[in-house]
Nucleic acid binder design. Structure first.
Length: 544
RNA sequence: GCGGGUGUAGCUCAACGGUAGAGCAGUAGCCUUCCAAGCUAUUGACGGGGGUUCGACUCCCCUCACCCGCUCCA
């Protein structure tokens, strides 16, 4: 399938629109239309239901090390700025960068250094990424090359400064960039902040600077103690949250895949350190299975363990659930969800301050004065186990899913074109979204076969009976085949049609989207049958 | 952020330095007794901003967005 085809369908039928389209759009932002909002809501609700509400904490789920509890949370998008300093996001996401127009390379402004040199009246700043003696050698080599001199002529160069940071250079047009051959190829330093910045209160000074959250996870960690104190949960337990996050991505790309505003569905699962490995295994399998159960095909879905080099500095294991999106090169997969073993990194960070890795240890990062670079809350976020009389910092397993990416994957997977005979028996192309009934925006459409003989009235009463239970749709316009096709295109799994036989025996036909099979049920059973079909409790008779 | 490409109606595509056309879709009605495109009527577009010109959808510049390739992706 071509991605444009799906994008066009999404727009035409109201799944996804470009944000602010009438003003020309805004890169990296997407709106969900009337059908898209239902799809995404269904994804969210399936996730919440499957992970939180339907979870039975009294039994050991299949594959789990023990019973566990699940609760939910909804924390704010803007949090205390210190949250992001201790979590590491502030340092990681906040840099000044310069780009080289010649080589297209990008450098961290504060990591480039160099020295001033003159030759025959021309004074330039030779920059390098190297440090120490290497920087001296590198700058000399580059200066010689630039002025067209041989190594033996190096005395003719007049060095006018020691190695200094690029940040001390006012006029970048005099800078020879680290990999460039010509002068002045660096752009002015640009703030490269992957977190959206805003200001709390009317004053917009740095004092009041705040950030839109780049992940929902931190809201859970900072509420860890509140949840413990208010709910009587015991370890092991998970806290789930669904909400918007914001990242000022450099290159939003691939439809909604990499958006700047996106929705996450995250669980932070807290457990005893010695059981964390087993829980990690449990969650990575369970989360993979969730996508399979909702219809993503096994050959396009994979669970990939990160290699040791890929792991974040705090993680002792991470696996991604990945989907072979059609916009990626064959063989490439895009991330839907990451399941990370985060150890005690997060809770410790919010107790002690920002942590960095030193050898095999995580230690508080210190500033030049030997003080913590970013102070933690100082609150005790340890857990006291009443049974074993032990106090410890729980370890965390984090399944973190993207709701928009899931929606996109389900749409990609569902899109299909097949051939269906028309009224004369000639094969015609049909576009159909084979969405799982749980995810389909509309569960059932109700039609009178024709707009006469009292069929519309009966159909309308069936519609009225269904309405309180499932999202349904009524249509009496045009030929019935055309109405079926319209529903196929938006993934409605079932259609109920009132025909002349209904008038005689009070039965209607149910049509299955995928198989095109039809069978008759009693008018009075419509609500029950449709509910069962949508929940999967019942299957179309020919397929059962 | 860089390079290349694209931007005309919801979609697919025309035309022209001088009043922007069509098919499909949509809407209203007719016709239709189970898998869209039969009839009638009808809605609807030059991504945005400048410039050149008597006149710009057309030529030029800028910008925005999308696609492809790099770069980036905690």
């Amino acid at each position: 399938m071509q991605m444009e085809t799906l994008v066009a369908l999404c727009k035409r039928r109201g799944f996804l629109f470009q944000s602010s389209e009438i003003y020309g759009g805004l890169n990296g932002f997407w709106d969900y239309g009337p059908l898209g909002v239902e799809l995404k809501r269904n994804i969210r609700e399936a996730w919440w239901w499957d992970n939180v509400l339907s979870h039975n904490e009294l039994i050991t789920p299949l594959g789990a090390p023990s019973p566990y509890q699940m609760v939910g949370l909804d924390s704010t998008i803007i949090m205390h700025p210190q949250v992001w300093k201790c979590s590491g996001h502030y340092d990681l996401f906040h840099d000044y960068m310069v780009d080289c127009r010649e080589t297209k390379k990008r450098y961290r402004y504060d990591q480039v250094q160099g020295r001033w040199v003159s030759y025959k009246g021309q004074r330039i700043f030779v920059a390098t990424e190297a440090v120490g003696d290497e920087a001296l050698a590198e700058t000399e080599h580059k200066a010689l090359k630039y002025f067209g001199l041989r190594p033996k002529d190096s005395e003719e160069l007049v060095w006018e400064s020691p190695i200094v940071s690029l940040t001390t250079v006012e006029d970048l047009s005099l800078v020879l960039a680290p990999d460039a051959k010509t002068l002045g190829t660096l752009t002015p330093p640009r703030e490269f902040n992957l977190m959206f910045k805003t200001y709390v209160g009317a004053l917009s000074g740095e004092e009041n600077a705040a950030f839109l959250r780049p992940e929902t996870a931190q809201g859970i960690f900072v509420n860890f103690k509140n949840v413990l104190d208010s709910t009587r949960v015991k370890i092991p337990f998970g806290i789930a949250q669904i909400g918007k996050s914001f990242r000022n991505e450099i290159t939003p790309r691939y439809f909604t895949f990499r958006s700047r505003e996106f929705e996450q569905m995250e669980i932070e699962f807290f457990c005893r350190p010695e059981t964390s490995r087993a829980w990690y295994e449990y969650w990575r399998k369970r989360r993979y299975q969730w996508y399979l159960d909702l219809g993503l095909a096994g050959e396009r879905l994979r669970l990939r363990d990160h290699s040791p080099e890929e792991l974040s500095h705090y993680s002792c294991g991470t696996a991604d659930v990945e989907y072979a999106f059609p916009f990626l090169a064959p063989g490439d997969f895009g991330e839907l969800e990451g399941i990370a073993h985060r150890g005690d990194f997060d809770l410790r960070s919010h107790m002690e301050g920002k942590l960095i890795r030193k050898g095999n240890e995580l230690v508080v990062e210190l500033d030049a004065n030997g003080q913590p670079k970013y102070r933690g809350s100082g609150r005790d976020l340890t857990y006291f186990d009443e049974e074993t009389r032990e106090r410890f910092i729980p370890h965390v397993i984090e399944p973190s899913a993207g709701a928009d990416r899931a929606a996109l994957a389900f749409l990609c997977e569902a899109y299909a074109e097949d051939t269906v005979p028309d009224e004369k028996g000639n094969p015609t192309k049909r576009v159909v979204l084979r969405l799982h009934p749980r995810l389909a925006p509309t569960k059932v459409a109700v039609f009178p076969l024709v707009k006469k003989d009292g069929m519309p009235e009966i159909a309308q009463s069936i519609y009225a009976a269904l309405k309180p239970h499932v999202n349904c749709f009524y249509d009496e316009k045009g030929a019935v085949g055309r109405r079926y096709r319209r529903q196929d295109e938006v993934g409605t799994p079932f259609c109920i049609t009132v025909d002349s036989q209904t008038l005689a025996d009070n039965t209607v036909t149910v049509r299955d989207r995928d198989s095109l099979r039809q069978w008759r049920i009693k008018v009075d059973d419509c609500v029950e049958v449709i509910k069962n079909l949508v929940s999967g409790k019942e299957r179309p008779p020919e397929l059962a």
